[in-house]
Design a protein around this nucleic acid. Structure first.
Lengths: 270, 270
DNA sequence: TATCAAAGTTAGAAACATCTAACAAAAAGG
DNA sequence: CCTTTTTGTTAGATGTTTCTAACTTTGATA
């Protein structure tokens, strides 16, 4: 439990859930359609049942974050208001980053911002804010640059001006640049090391140029996901499923293909 | 609870904590110093007590994510390994973004990556990966650009090439660009609207040029944090605390100063 | 103004992740 | 091989957030 003092008195840190309630109530405060904030509204906004709200309000009241007495009107204290405002601000900045830089759709961005706003410290938030300001205030590095990124993201195309320096960017994370030198963040292995049934993603295709072209013509190029359908090590051929298509490969050919295991999913929170 | 099927059978999504355990165990697998994974090691890595690990291992065993029998050796199943690998990859990419783009120190970045890795969906992760690749693969837009950002962050200085376009960047978030036009993500108000004891940050200083210069000479420029020490509305003067210094302002002067309430902190998770 | 639906509350239970205290097995060291 | 230390387990409790079911208050309306 993180230590935190205020006015000399020990204070437990707020939980993420408490922050969510404060943010929700803060937003209801500024909702024109709503004059008095009701338990009902909070429950709806957070998608929980009313008794859950009631019990949380007691907790928040004890911690001097809302003024709450049963059956009475409800409002945030100054302290609660400050936190609610901060959460709302974080939410906005993070969502903006997700939508306008990473190109995520608004609905997903909103959901993920909801979780991220509890994960970042205030100095990270300051940096992210500066980042977003910079992108807006400096279109040369900003808009243009974001557009370049998005082209890269969609077609793998880099702006002409960058190509000259392509080969010699350096890898900072020691010990990981071994195989392909293309990127420092994947965990790479050889296609011929994968087991039957495993999924993966192509990182690079090596070997002699004509062979490489043939492999790429089969649809096996950087970024493509596949599944190993059949493979008894050292026993040809190896069979892949690429976007529903069946592809056969000699083991010797597979040895030149660097892949990253995993399908990028397989995680619960979605 | 998010719906999720696999092989036709209903499957509860993993909790973030379960993902943390899988990631920790996955990392122990690849630790050279450790031949057999012990409850002890996991407990140490996650900073929990051993009984906590034991009970989690039972859960993970029931869900077919580890092979565990009491007092016996322990290992991840293929399913568990896939998730552990994915979490580790996410952790790396996020941490790299935090350290090399946002300029956060490694320790903080590591802690925050730990939380963020549960907040992002796989398509967001793909975008972020592409983002980091782009920065590395395309130094013109990447290194140079990151360097420009970091200068902006530290000294508020933009590269010469950007200045021409300064005034007309547009704000996408409707209804928020009202007051200063400087940024779309703060909740702005007038300094004279703030109450005694509140904290805030200067967004812009308006008014006649000589007055403005005088105010800025007192240390009240964009980005500076302050606290309202004394202020009875409409009753001069208003007193601020700026980095420990006392500053007095006439209410008329304060009316031209746009601020954002809050000190950027006031949130628990740090 | 008496009645009834909507809004809110209490009480009690459950899931999750954690802990401490006490006990049990395995490993190490003579 | 017996003793001690280290490692691991069980049992039981706590705190947080949620739920359902049953009850109470408020306030709209007939």
């Amino acid at each position: 439990m993180a230590a935190d003092k205020k006015g000399g008195v020990w204070e437990k840190p707020l939980t993420p859930v408490m922050e969510d309630y404060l943010e929700a109530i803060y937003e209801l405060h500024s909702d024109e359609d709503i004059k008095a904030i009701r338990v009902r509204d909070i429950a709806k906004k957070l998608d929980v049942k009313m008794p859950t709200v009631t019990s949380m309000l007691k907790v928040l009241n004890d911690r001097d974050l809302v003024n709450y007495e049963k059956y009475e009107y409800l409002e945030l204290t100054d302290k609660g208001k400050g936190i609610g405002r901060e959460m709302k601000k974080r939410h906005h900045i993070i969502r903006k980053f997700l939508t306008s830089v990473l190109n995520i759709d608004m609905k997903t961005a909103d959901e993920e911002a909801c979780k991220m706003e509890h994960a970042l410290g205030s100095s990270t938030m300051e940096s992210l804010t500066a980042f977003m300001e910079f992108i807006q205030v400096c279109p040369r590095a900003g808009d243009d640059w974001v557009a370049h990124f998005q082209a890269y993201q969609q077609h793998g195309r880099r702006p002409e001006a960058c190509k000259e320096k392509f080969e010699h960017f350096k890898c900072e994370t020691a010990g990981e640049s071994a195989i392909s030198g293309k990127c420092c963040m994947e965990e790479k292995m050889n296609l011929s090391q994968m087991k039957e049934g495993q999924k993966g993603r192509i990182i690079s295709v090596g070997g002699e140029i004509r062979l490489r072209r043939r492999i790429i013509e089969m649809g096996l190029s950087r970024g493509v996901y596949f599944r190993v359908e059949k493979y008894a090590p050292l026993k040809d051929p190896l069979e892949l499923n690429v976007n529903g298509n069946h592809v056969s490969l000699r083991v010797k050919e597979a040895a030149g293909i660097i892949v990253e295991p995993g399908d990028g999913k397989g995680v619960s929170n979605e």
